[in-house]
């Protein structure tokens, strides 16, 4: 039987009390697989991701992450629980007054107080190397780095605490095709290195979805339009899915 990492039941969210951005999402994200959430702009992909991260409180519905409901926990418990999740934000969200190495050390210094500074630095350097950042860039601050380098540092920071769930918010947005391919490759590599970890990618890049995704979810108007393997999508006769596939591959 398939193990579940994230279970979302009838999730609804309205910011103004009238229009619902998410309108009854029912979704199960399997453990140990790469799930890609796709959809047109404004369908609620990023809002859904923020719900999974516990950054937005749902209007109604239930989200279970690794069998726990974030909103039934105390703040301290949430903070501890969040160690199990790592996120690569759209623009990496690096702390701009810290170097690449300091950015990766930061969560370790907070949550691994049992480690000495040298051990923390060693772990951080290892994560940066795994993410593919050249050592000569370790002491650069974000403003001195390119988009691709920032993504690598963001990924290393997300990996710092060896999370069970790794989430990517539009990881290839704003990158050129070569960098996009590199990031896709990085996501796949990271998933394989961290055996057993669950990866969730929010993207509108159809090529990425089909090249890295083992499980794809398509959102439309705040609901799940289709969920399944890439083959399920290829064989789907839903008009919107076909249009999205045709358009995506054409523009890609």
């Amino acid at each position: 039987m398939m193990e579940v990492a994230i279970d979302i039941q009838n999730l609804r969210k309205s910011f103004d009390g009238k229009d619902f951005v998410l309108n009854g999402i029912n979704l199960t994200i399997p453990k140990g697989k790469i799930t890609v959430i796709i959809g047109f702009s404004g369908t609620g992909k990023s809002v859904l991701l923020k719900h999974i991260l516990g950054l937005i409180r749902p209007t109604s519905g239930n989200i279970q992450i690794l069998g726990r409901d974030l909103w039934s926990m105390e703040q301290k418990e949430i903070n501890l629980f969040r160690r199990k999740m790592g996120v690569l934000f759209q623009y990496a969200a690096l702390f701009d007054d810290m170097t690449a190495l300091e950015n990766v050390c930061f969560p370790l210094r907070e949550h691994r107080r049992d480690l000495k500074l040298k051990e923390i630095v060693d772990i951080a350097m290892n994560k940066l190397k795994v993410s593919g950042l050249d050592q000569k860039h370790f002491n650069k601050i974000p403003s001195e780095m390119s988009g691709g380098m920032r993504k690598r540092v963001g990924l290393a920071r997300a990996l710092a605490l060896d999370p069970e769930i790794l989430l990517y918010d539009e990881p290839t947005t704003g990158l050129d095709p070569i960098l996009t391919e590199m990031v896709d490759h990085l996501i796949k590599e990271t998933h394989h290195v961290h055996t057993g970890s669950t990866t969730v990618v929010v993207s509108h890049d159809l090529f990425a979805a089909f090249s890295i995704g083992e499980h794809i979810v398509m959102l439309d108007k705040g609901t799940v339009l289709l969920s399944g393997t890439p083959d399920v999508f290829r064989n789907s006769d839903i008009e919107l899915v076909q249009r999205f596939l045709a358009k995506g591959f054409k523009t890609g």
């Binding site: 991260l53 950054l55 501890l80 996120v87 969200a93 907070e110 949550h111």
Partner: peptide, 18 residues
Amino acid sequence: GTMRVSEQIDALEVMGFD
């Protein structure tokens, strides 16, 4: 404000910081 709009505060929260 800069930290908020560049998602650095979200990143902090997600890393388990209050």
